[in-house]
Design a protein around this nucleic acid. Structure first.
Lengths: 264, 264
DNA sequence: ATATGTGAAGGGTTTCACAGCC
DNA sequence: GGCTGTGAAACCCTTCACATAT
């Protein structure tokens, strides 16, 4: 299996729920915006609206961090910004390497959202010798041969993989062997890592597929709870399915319609 | 608040849990790989390993789709590929527009994972007149003025926003007004959309922040369950915390350390 | 003998609603 | 009066373990 165990027993002390951790960056962004507008305090209701969550959830989330609000008043913006930053570990510097400087890697290198938080792009690494030395986002790309050296001399613990799928596992292994313990993976592969290494995955095509699922539902709705043939979509739809879809050579199913399985 | 209601009562008939839907693309990818290697059948155990989940979960997920396996044998690869593709709506053609052709937009346009599923990039749109006509990934970029026209004449229902944060809401409004009902948002903003429109968000900096949180934990572990001053990290770490942190005028908490809240 | 399909148990997350404090 | 902080309820998701089918 991919990551070591699903449970993350590691720390356990002071347990902040994963779901809460995943929302802290959202709150932080909303708070930063308020801070820039010099707003001194916010209510849970206002902040929740700005972050796109509901206020009860937000208050519960904050309750895991401590009692940082004032009843009857709200939260002090600056103070909360600091507390959340600290909780997330953003008050320290995080050198990051990006491996695979194709379109995506270059986009990541240029992404402003990193530097504005505690992240610093320590190096850009690519396997193509022709890329070596070329500047991307003001940083000279280095060859993969340098990987171990770069990781070690910069004390990098977070790596970003933006290589083609085929190279991802190998790059991952080298990063881990050199000391990286957190990986953000953009390659469409399941990475296998030893226990103690965290992997997060961002997969563009998966997100689109989830949208397509819901979109299909919406379309089917209008004609009733049926699947309907393709191009049944509610909107003028378009271009009958160029069907370049690599679907499969053959299909056993009745034909291509609603199974209406719905288990007991 | 952002999206209309959290509940999605819309269809209700044949309810597949959200968590299951989010994993179907993973299974599909693993199955496609098996299919290309001409593997005829897989057990839940094998497929689960390839997809990076546990086998009980996989079987439960498939049980929502119907009984597509054979006891004592396993699942027919081709058949499952077809069933999941259909369930996700990938047997039909989904024209997609990408708005904002900067580094990220270009990376998305070039991303192979779209075309290989049912997605087709119908148009690339950018606000910069200088971009108009320039080919990216073999498609000529069009100006934002054309947005409504493009959406309508192509029957586009899925839009991808890769603009700067400041432009995202406005672009979103225009997409929705023109008929788009699913949006994949890469801009670091909370989008407000009317009921019936789905938004999924991908935020690069948020993913890194979540990793940083866990990374900090790991570092703190070695010295004991304390917050510790910055640069306490386990690894050589680096460059003492430029402390650009907008700290705060004052702090109510004890000092800056473990609140040890842990509710009863 | 082997591997699926699924009730039931368990754990986590969200929401409610109100006590507590300003 | 207003708004936070939080037990308790409701909900969702995961995991277990075994009946069921080949």
């Amino acid at each position: 299996m991919a990551t070591g165990r699903t449970h993350r027993p590691a720390t356990r002390s002071r347990g902040i729920p994963e779901a809460t951790v995943a929302r802290l960056p959202l709150y932080l962004r909303a708070l930063t915006a308020l801070s820039e507008r010099s707003v001194p305090t916010v209510s849970s209701e206002e902040l929740a609206a700005a972050a796109g969550v509901n206020s009860a959830k937000l208050r519960k989330d904050f309750s895991y961090l401590g009692s940082y609000g004032t009843r009857g008043v709200g939260y002090d913006v600056e103070y909360l910004v600091y507390q959340i930053s600290r909780e997330l570990g953003l008050t320290q510097d995080w050198p990051v390497v990006i491996v695979g400087i194709g379109n995506l890697g270059a986009a990541l290198a240029n992404y402003g959202g990193f530097a504005s938080r505690g992240f610093r792009v320590a190096a850009l690494i690519d396997a193509d010798p022709a890329m070596a030395g070329k500047p991307v986002a003001g940083i000279a790309v280095q060859h993969t041969d340098e990987l171990e050296h770069i990781i070690e001399s910069n004390g990098v613990s977070i790596g970003v993989i933006a290589t083609p799928a085929g190279a991802a596992q190998q790059v991952c292994d080298r990063l881990v062997a050199a000391g990286v313990t957190s990986i953000l993976n953009f390659a469409p592969t399941v990475l296998t890592v030893p226990d103690g290494v965290d992997v997060r995955k961002v997969d563009l095509s998966i997100e689109l597929q989830i949208l397509a699922f819901h979109e299909q539902r919406k379309a089917g709705e209008e004609t009733g709870p049926e699947g309907g043939a393709p191009t049944t979509s509610g909107r003028p739809a378009a271009v009958a399915a160029a069907a370049e879809a690599a679907v499969a050579g053959e299909r056993k199913g009745p034909d291509g319609d609603v199974p209406a399985v719905m288990p007991a």
